[in-house]
């Protein structure tokens, strides 16, 4: 069992958690490592869009998101201001997005085009980084100080977590065994911990990518989608609801929904469309990374699916661009 780390310091005041929900970016301030739930509010309201991935640029205080309805990649200032479209062409289903605040680039996954792309933060200098061996890439993140990107692909036949240099070279598989639907992925540069939330195995697992010391942090999660960390806690968006139950009809596992255990018979190999009257609910669940247990949760007023989630640091974490150092 990991011991509490004394070196985990509170976030600078003014940090917050951002997540997307049905045409909205929601905002929950952090007080230290606690969610200030009473101060939660909608940061951006784009009622006709379906926002999925979200990332934050700590330098210019801009929020970036993917939108599968247009489809598009856009940004806006958190402190008001109109959304600015950055990428609107040649997109299929852009899902995960990550910002390299040092190199001033953004990376995104596209689960229809089956590729990972990069561009400058203004949308220029766009380039396909990886277009082979991808089936359902979703979460993506950057570690600017080491020059790596990490991503997860929930391909039902061969789910995996991979990494590569920021130019797409030196690609390698980090995890491929005992994965189900690795939807959420996050990295804490301070402790070099890469953690993922799996909606198939219902586990959170972590590892140091350089050591390969994979270990389970928690099990019994409901249906994680996105995940982020503030160094101490993990925060994940959860599709708690019948949607989660339906996805597991295949394996016939018992699932915990809203506090009570419900079991389902195996309908191996057959998916079932959820019935019309059962809408997905959503929430943000907080896990203490060192205690390995759920410590808090937040349910927004509107009950619908939550997607991407990110930590918006009031100040950029210290560290230098890998390229400028090497």
């Amino acid at each position: 069992r990991p011991t509490p780390r004394p070196d985990v310091s509170p976030l600078p005041p003014g940090s917050h958690i951002l997540f997307t929900q049905s045409g909205k970016v929601e905002f929950v301030p952090l007080d230290g490592h606690d969610l200030k739930k009473t101060e939660a509010k909608t940061a951006l309201h784009l009622p006709e869009k379906v926002l999925i991935g979200i990332a934050y640029d700590c330098l210019e205080k801009m929020v970036y998101w993917t939108d599968i309805s247009t489809p598009a990649i856009s940004k806006a200032s958190l402190h008001g201001g109109e959304p600015i479209s950055l990428i609107t062409t040649d997109l299929g289903s852009p899902e995960g997005i990550a910002v390299d605040h040092l190199g001033r680039n953004m990376f995104w996954t596209d689960s229809m085009k089956d590729r990972i792309e990069v561009s400058s933060l203004d949308g220029s200098k766009r380039r396909v980084l990886i277009d082979t061996g991808l089936v359902n890439p979703r979460a993506i993140l950057t570690d600017p100080t080491s020059g790596y990107i990490y991503w997860a692909d929930w391909n039902r036949d061969s789910p995996r977590i991979e990494m590569a240099y920021m130019d797409g070279t030196n690609r390698r598989i980090l995890v491929k065994d005992d994965l189900g639907l690795p939807n959420g992925l996050t990295y804490d540069p301070q402790t070099s911990q890469l953690c993922w939330a799996d909606a198939g195995t219902h586990k959170v697992e972590c590892m140091n990518p350089n050591l390969g010391d994979r270990r389970q942090l928690m099990e019994g999660l409901q249906y994680p989608f996105g995940m982020t960390t503030d160094g101490k806690n993990l925060y994940y968006t959860d599709w708690r609801s019948l949607a989660s139950v339906f996805s597991d009809l295949r394996s016939g596992v018992a699932l915990k929904t809203r506090g009570s255990w419900v079991s389902f018979h195996c309908r191996c190999g057959v998916f079932s469309d959820p019935p019309a009257d059962h809408y997905a609910l959503g929430g943000v669940v907080v896990i203490d990374r060192h205690a390995g247990k759920e410590v808090d949760e937040f349910q927004p007023q509107k009950q619908t699916r939550l997607y991407g989630i990110t930590t918006a640091h009031a100040q950029c974490p210290s560290g230098q661009n890998y390229c400028s150092v090497n």
């Binding site: 998916f271 469309d273 019309a276």
Partner: peptide, 21 residues
């Protein structure tokens, strides 16, 4: 009224954007 995407069980419930709204 809004109904779940109806795709002959040929969509994946873990995917987003499964049908035109």
């Amino acid at each position: 009224t809004c109904r779940a995407c109806s795709c002959n069980n040929n969509i994946d419930p873990n995917a987003v954007g499964n049908c035109n709204r």
